[in-house]
């Protein structure tokens, strides 16, 4: 029998990624994601490395930017590209609940 993830597992990751799946997709991804997760499992077989990490193969450290102002966008251009807007604002369906962030 083909290995697959449970329906709940797929729905959980789909929600993390904010992606709505059709029934057909759910069934397909149950098999496909399992295959990929089996692949990444192989990382646990690797040995002999040290604890230093490589975030990205940066060739230089960060050069800080001077605190001086540059050009900005016309609010009209900002809202024109947005699918929903109201005056100078970009709008979205009403949001209930507070930000998780700062």
């Amino acid at each position: 029998m083909e290995e697959k993830l449970s329906r709940e597992e797929i729905l959980h990751v789909a929600n993390l990624a904010r992606i709505k799946l059709t029934e057909e997709e759910i069934e397909k991804y149950r098999v496909q994601l399992k295959k990929l997760l089996n692949d990444v499992e192989k990382i646990n077989e690797v040995e002999g490395y040290d604890n230093d990490i490589l975030i990205a193969p940066w060739e230089s450290n960060t050069t800080l930017r001077e605190d001086s102002e540059g050009s900005m966008l016309d609010p009209k251009a900002v809202v024109e590209n947005a699918p929903r807007h109201s005056g100078n604002y970009i709008s979205v369906p009403v949001v209930i609940g507070e930000s998780e962030g700062a």
Binding site: L64, G70, L73, P75, N88
Partner: peptide, 30 residues
């Protein structure tokens, strides 16, 4: 490098980086 300001017209102190446009990258203010 857009202006850090308060009380200005909506969306007048932004650039493509602040808006998270595709392809943009951060720089870091000294």
């Amino acid at each position: 490098n857009s202006t850090n300001g308060y009380g200005q017209m909506a969306n007048s102190l932004t650039n493509v980086i602040d808006l998270g446009y595709p392809g943009t990258l951060p720089t870091l203010n000294k």
